[in-house]
Design a protein around this nucleic acid. Structure first.
Length: 855
DNA sequence: CGAGGCGCCCAG
DNA sequence: CATCGCTGGGCGCCTCG
């Protein structure tokens, strides 16, 4: 496309925009709008209007107004109906162009009730994620050519299926020919091309991830357990504990639906691939050759003799769920009622009978035989093994000996009465057969005594010296292992039996994806973060909970690790970066959470192409019921209910009356006195942008948009304020001056330190916004920047300047007039920015190699 | 010296 | 073709007041 054509398009769209603007304001009803705003939003709104120097109040303000109004209205509709739909469109904002079927109103209603945002006007095209249309004239086609233009079916079919379908499948074809072709092709979703940039990636990944299923099933079973009734034993009760576990569950299920293999003769594994694929489960024939769960297929193949072929079977998650359901039903319906059926996982449960002395003693052997045969029959071919005892750890050890396809009943008395018998028993187990003892703890124990191999040796080595063991592995772990070696459970282990409701209660919610993560741009990652937020919030709402603390964990390719690791699309060797945000207020709003996460991602400064994994955790969960009502509204207001007179006075005359009425109705007082605000933030921003090299202006703008969003949510302001209270200015200053070496030992090879420095600098900025930074500190800081510059690490300077600028931007409302703020602004503009400009040329090349925050 | 945060560890 | 390396909770160690 040549320049002239481009210009034409630009002009024409501008005209159209203007046309639209002329009609807009007639529908404006300020009274109605204002009444729908919360106090905090109202006050901020007035402040914004008053601050804006371009005071014609017909364009931007009108649309902003309209938008707020619309959103509040949508929210109200959503709540009035009391219908709770999954927020499948969360994070999406649409604009509907022209005639559609179903009609505009219907689509609007559908879209917002499923969590989407709707814009009546193309006020700022940037905010829109999708444009909905059935056909577009040529002019519009060009105008929208960089947007996701979809057919209305995208909305209706997504709602039908209750999930966000990939818009690509509903993209409006540019010409009729193509459209016809598409209909003929009947385009089934090409499932093999789903990568992490696809909106359905997470769903697709989870559908195939065994570990995700294991975690998910476990959570479901726990929640089911809590909804059931059970009899809780008291300490001192005599118990019979049955630890029941399927034998190589996944492999058995897979083999059952495969009629060409023999589970007793062929070495069978369950896996996705042929080389670097994890073995989820292997049968006992395979184990005979040394094959283990978790091993890669390629390795397993090397363990077999040349004439034996490994049988790789696919996962059959559906049948696994099915057999597990039968398993739990058998346990529940068993004729001698279990007092507790504690779910350990999809294929494993601990059943407890409280021995009541008034009735005949139970026959544990008989129960084991009954349960085993019933499960064998009802699952049509799955075997379970059972370990039974009167203590959890002993049941587990018995189970280990019972496997495969057997059972074993031995009480603590029987096991430990005779010391020789007990020693022989212990000698049968390796150290990591103890529950809670894995690779790392074994290594610690071996560091003390490399000879340690089995539990008997472990017992003999630490003999009666608990302190020695605790010194090696820690207090509680030492205590636990020591108890186990006596054939007893420690307190923590038995909590599952004695306080099951507390033990099984959910305390956190998280998502983690460390496979298939290969992004190029921040925008793609933003979309991905949105998907994560939507996924988690959906669960959060299901749980009827809100969260007040969010942790983001990123996996970043280690500097020396190859770009592509051995495992296809695997994460390879990574450094973990993490950051926790306190929200101040519990929330379940996907927008707030997603914005916070996107900010956090920027703070962690992981170059998009280096990203190999993303994790998000909601750490502090609170019941929704405890945070609704008036309390929340109060918390939402970081301001007192007063309004500065000058702010009010600055308003255009025609709207003053409306506000006046509304303020009176709400008892908001207008206070006198000179204004504390000016329009400087705008100036500051413009100046800053002006100074930046053009090629990075866009990305700064992008970041600022995110920051703007945060401002709107209010949460961050509140958070910053509460955080600030805790901060001691003195401490930070002492930190910088006291350790003059702070900027000294920067090892440029090791970038993790840069993150810390960013953190410190931001804290420093926060703490000195009022009184200003110490001259000496600034000097040191400048020296540090110079050294970065000398070492060709200009991107780092860019990053730090961006962090400072966004921080200042965020704070401008509160500290714009403070001398500290001004001092920082001066430093940014006169010291840091010139360094960036000076390095423009090197910067471009370095940037390609190092960070790639392109837009 | 207790509370709380961070990160490692473990299980299935 | 590959491949689907999750997720929740405990514990140890550190820092902060």
């Amino acid at each position: 496309m040549d320049n002239e054509e481009l210009l034409k398009i630009l002009e024409s769209t501008q005209e159209e925009e203007n046309d639209r603007l002329k009609v807009g304001p007639e529908e404006y009803d300020p009274g109605e709008t204002l009444a729908q705003l919360s106090d905090g939003v109202l006050i901020e709104y007035i402040a914004n209007l008053s601050q804006d120097p371009r005071k014609d109040f017909t364009r931007e303000e009108y649309f902003r107004d309209k938008e707020i109004k619309q959103r509040e209205h949508d929210e109200a509709t959503r709540q009035e109906r009391g219908e709770i739909h999954p927020p499948i469109f969360a994070g999406c904002t649409i604009y509907i162009n022209g005639y559609t079927k179903p009609g505009r109103l219907q689509l609007h209603e559908m879209f917002v009730s499923y969590g989407g945002n709707f814009l009546h006007y193309l006020s700022g095209k940037r905010k829109i994620t999708h444009i909905v249309a059935t056909n577009l004239p040529l002019k519009k086609r060009l105008e929208f050519r960089n947007y996701k233009v979809v057919r209305p079916e995208w909305i209706t079919e997504s709602i039908d299926q209750e999930k966000l379908l990939p818009w690509q499948n509903y993209a409006l074809s540019w010409d009729q020919e193509q459209k016809n072709l598409q209909f003929k092709a009947a385009s089934p979703p090409p499932s093999d091309t789903i990568d992490c940039k696809d909106p359905n990636f997470i769903q697709n990944f989870f559908e195939n991830s065994r570990l995700h299923h294991l975690s998910n099933w476990k959570a479901d079973l726990r929640s089911k357990f809590l909804n059931d009734t059970f009899t809780k034993p008291s300490p001192g009760d005599s118990l019979s504990i049955f630890h029941i576990d399927f034998d190589c569950f996944f492999a058995t299920v897979a083999a059952l639906s495969c009629n060409t293999c023999d589970i007793d003769r062929d070495p069978i594994v369950v896996c996705h691939g042929t080389k670097s694929s994890d073995i989820a489960s292997c049968n006992y024939v395979a184990r005979k050759y040394g094959i283990r769960n978790g091993m890669w297929v390629s390795r397993a193949k090397t363990l077999l003799p040349p004439d034996v072929e490994l049988v790789c079977l696919p996962y059959n998650f559906e049948q696994i769920e099915n057999k597990s359901k039968i398993f739990y039903e058998v346990l529940k319906d068993y004729e001698i009622k279990f007092d507790l059926i504690l779910p350990i996982s999809i294929d494993e449960a601990v059943c407890v009978i409280i021995n009541n002395h008034s009735i005949e003693p139970i026959d544990c052997d008989q129960i084991c035989r009954d349960v085993r045969s019933q499960i064998w029959e009802k699952t049509k071919g799955c075997t379970v093994s059972i370990g039974c005892s009167d203590f959890l750890v002993l049941s587990r050890l018995n189970l280990k000996l019972a496997k495969p396809n057997g059972y074993r009943v031995l009480t603590q008395d029987q096991l430990t009465k005779d010391e020789q018998f007990w020693d022989d028993f212990l000698a049968k187990f390796s150290i990591d057969d103890l529950p809670g003892v894995g690779y790392s703890i074994v290594s610690k124990l071996r560091a003390d005594n490399p000879e340690l191999d089995n539990l008997l040796q472990l017992k003999q080595y630490y003999h009666n010296s608990l302190p020695l063991l605790q010194k090696c592995v820690g207090k509680k772990t030492g205590n636990k292992i020591f108890s186990f070696l006596q054939g007893k459970d420690d307190q923590e282990s038995s909590r599952m039996i004695y306080q099951p409701e507390e033990f099984f209660a959910r305390k956190s919610l998280s998502i983690e994806i460390n496979w298939g993560i290969r992004f190029d741009t921040v925008q793609e990652i933003d979309d991905f973060i949105d998907s994560c937020a939507v996924y988690l919030v959906r669960k959060l709402i299901d749980l009827n909970k809100k969260t007040s603390q969010i942790t983001m964990k990123l996996m970043r390719r280690s500097a020396h690790a190859p770009i592509e690791p051995a495992k296809y699309l695997g994460m390879g060797e990574c450094d973990a970066l993490s950051h926790t945000s306190r929200l101040g207020i519990p929330t379940s709003e996907v927008g707030v959470i997603a914005t916070e996460l996107k900010c956090t991602f920027r703070l962690l400064a992981c170059p998009p192409k280096e990203l190999r994994g993303v994790g998000v955790q909601f750490n502090k969960l609170v019941e929704v019921s405890s945070s609704v009502g008036g309390q929340q509204d109060k918390l939402r207001l970081p301001f007192q209910k007063t309004l500065n007179f000058e702010l009010f006075n600055n308003l255009p005359n025609d709207v003053k009356a409306d506000f006046s009425k509304e303020l009176k109705r709400r008892d908001i007082i207008i206070t006198g006195g000179p204004s504390v605000r000016s329009s400087r933030p705008t100036t500051y921003q413009e100046r800053f942008m002006e100074e930046l090299p053009t090629q990075i202006r866009n990305e700064v703008k992008h970041d600022m948009r995110i920051t703007e969003k945060i401002k709107k949510t209010k949460l961050s302001e509140l958070r910053e304020q509460t955080r600030k209270k805790k901060e001691s200015i003195k401490n930070v200053r002492a930190h910088l001056l006291g350790r003059e070496s702070l900027f000294e030992p920067i090892k440029f090879q090791k970038e993790t330190r840069f993150k810390d420095i960013c953190k410190i600098v931001l804290d420093w900025v926060d703490a000195t916004l009022i009184d200003g930074p110490h001259e000496k500190d600034l000097e040191l800081f400048e020296t540090y920047l110079d050294r970065l510059s000398d070492a060709n690490r200009v991107p780092l300077i860019l990053r730090i300047s961006k962090l400072i600028s966004t921080r200042l931007n965020l704070k401008s409302n509160y500290h714009g007039e403070d001398s500290g703020f001004q001092e920082w602004e001066r430093f940014l503009l006169t010291v840091i920015i010139p360094k960036l400009n000076k390095n423009k040329h090197t910067f471009q090349t370095v940037r390609k190699l190092d960070i790639d925050f392109d837009l």
